[in-house]
Amino acid sequence: MINRQSRAPVGAAAVDPVSPPHVALVEDDQLLRDRLVAPGLRDFGFRVSAVGTVKELEQLLSTDEPDIVVLDVGLPDGDGFSLAERLHLSSRIGIVMLSGRHTQEDRVRGLSNGADAYLAKPVVMHELAATLRNLMRRLRPPPLRSVTAAAWRLDSQGWCLVAPNGVSIALKAHERAMLRALLDVPGEPVSREALIAAVGGDEQFDPHRIEVLVYRLRSKVGTKAGVVLPLSAVRGSGYVFTM
């Protein structure tokens, strides 16, 4: 039985706001769990504990409570809807249901039982990552600070690029590393060598991969935020991010 009566009160600062969010992935399909969803979430900067049964989740809750549970409906030893309800009533863990059952009735039941979001399979990793990031912002609200003007920035956890229009774009690890290097010196060129080092490249790293990374990042931002990413090539120097 899941029992989290020792939970912290609302507003308690029990979690380091910059530590990687801990996600428990509860999915009995081993291939989907271990080859697709868990590695995909890690690529987006989450710490993932992947389990396949309710019993394994209960063991995890007793030793290393996650921030969010991503929960399948059909499990070999339990019902995801009932499990979501128990988690909702006994803890402050975020709940995202990820299921092949996606009728309106299923969605309403999941949300009514306490899920914060209900997503349908097949999983779209960008959508799942963005959903988890949005939920984490509610679970770990950033400190209040004044904002003088709209500008491109990384969110408080550094894993989403926020456009001036307020749209957040979930980033992969190499995208985040490159943007941090560029946003540290806005308006100043950053060499390809520096960007290669930022993304963890070595002497065998193909410099053209930076060009591919920039192209894909521009395309992602244009598609998801509807604006142009102000990241430009500087002949002979590298790239520059203009705010």
Rank of each mutant, 00 (worst) to 15 (best):
V227S: 00
H88L: 09
Y215G: 03
M178T: 06
P207M: 03
R218W: 05
R218F: 05
A130N: 08
R145Y: 05
V10G: 11
H102W: 05
A194N: 11
G11N: 05
A120Q: 00
L98D: 01
V26P: 09
N165V: 01
H126M: 07
P39D: 00
S168L: 04
S168K: 01
V147K: 06
L182G: 01
K55W: 08
T242S: 10
F205G: 07
A197Q: 08
R192D: 07
I210L: 04
P66V: 06
F81P: 08
Y239L: 05
A117M: 02
S6I: 02
R4S: 08
L25C: 02
D28E: 09
K224Q: 10
I169R: 01
F241Q: 08
D184N: 10
K121W: 14
P21W: 14
V10E: 09
S90Q: 11
E211W: 02
S82P: 00
V18A: 02
R109N: 11
Q204K: 09
A149E: 09
R140P: 01
I169C: 01
R218T: 09
K220A: 15
I2K: 11
P17C: 14
R47A: 10
R216Q: 14
G52F: 08
V123K: 14
Q5V: 10
L128P: 12
V124T: 00
T63K: 09
G158F: 08
V10A: 15
L183F: 03
H208D: 13
S156W: 07
T223V: 14
A12S: 06
A129K: 06
M1R: 00
S146V: 11
R235N: 14
R33S: 02
V96M: 15
A177M: 09
R109D: 04
G52W: 05
S168H: 03
D64L: 00
T148E: 12
M1D: 05
V221G: 05
L25D: 00
L229M: 13
I68K: 00
I169F: 09
I2Y: 13
G201Q: 09
S219Y: 15
L195M: 12
G222C: 00
A38P: 04
V10M: 14
R145N: 03
E203S: 05
Q5A: 13
I2W: 12
L154Q: 07
L135P: 07
Y118G: 04
P143S: 15
L132Y: 07
A170M: 02
P122H: 11
V123I: 15
G100W: 05
V10K: 10
R153W: 06
L32C: 12
T242A: 14
S49Y: 13
R145H: 14
R153M: 06
V227M: 10
T242G: 02
P20L: 07
D202G: 03
E211T: 06
